[in-house]
Design a protein around this nucleic acid. Structure first.
Lengths: 139, 139
DNA sequence: CTGAATCCTACTGGATACTG
DNA sequence: CAGTATCCAGTAGGATTCAG
């Protein structure tokens, strides 16, 4: 989901979305599978790599590593290396990262409040699909 | 980005995200490439298929059709068919859909306000990557 | 411990052509 | 007009292996 600048040229109505045109690339921050969870795991302070891995049970090293690198690149997380043996690396949310978490929280709240409605709608829809079919192709 | 229920079992810290566990499936609403834009196009009232297609310049029939069907399934949009000739179909946001748009707007606002910071951070990061490299592997 | 590199699969989204 | 069906490319994400 990206294709780099598919770019949503002008946008008909909805002024609120005009600003989404350029910042669209930034939206990827919220679309990844893990980015939100990783930031959530950093809410309480700095964490080490394996600490995060344990918190996000189910994530692979690759995805954690990849996600962290992206978050760092986007300025949402800082990475601090302690040149000790064994090496130790701490990750921490930046101010920007915290502001992003607020948005994630808003999304989470909406999802929490409306999940039932959405799921019910889905069930109803899928149910209707299996129905009588009415339009019998009577030969 | 889905794999249906990868399911984020328990979640270490961040209480705010606990509720994301079950409703995670609902989050897909915001992750699609077009869902947000389509809902945005419906803000001012009902629209017909081709009307939407023109507003969302760049979208293909397939994606518009697919997106609308998903939105309908999730109860965010209603679909009304007028059995006239030629056929006419109207799409309109439901109350649930409108509430979702509010969240989308919040995301858009954040993106608009912080896009510059993120993009600057990215540039800086990419710049550093090309640097001296310091750690010369001196034989 | 903290990653990077490789391989592999499934899904998203686009182009094109056809139907009621 | 409002779709559906088919084919195709790019990519996200997982498993596994290797390295500093």
């Amino acid at each position: 989901m990206d294709t780099r600048f598919p770019d949503l040229r002008r946008f008909g109505g909805a002024d609120a979305f005009l600003q989404v045109c350029k910042p669209r690339t930034v939206l990827d921050i919220f679309t990844g599978k893990w980015a939100g969870l990783v930031m959530g795991a950093l809410l309480d302070g700095p964490r080490r790599f394996n600490e995060l891995r344990r918190m996000l049970d189910g994530i692979t090293q690759k995805m954690l590593s990849q996600t962290l690198r992206t978050l760092e690149r986007d300025g949402l997380v800082t990475r601090t290396v302690y040149p000790t043996i064994p090496p130790r690396v701490d990750y921490e949310l930046t101010a920007l990262g915290h502001s992003a978490v607020d948005v994630l929280r808003a999304i989470g709240v909406w999802a929490g409040e409306h999940a039932d409605q959405v799921l019910a709608a889905r069930e109803a829809y899928d149910e209707r699909a299996k129905e009588p079919v009415e339009m019998v192709s009577r030969a």
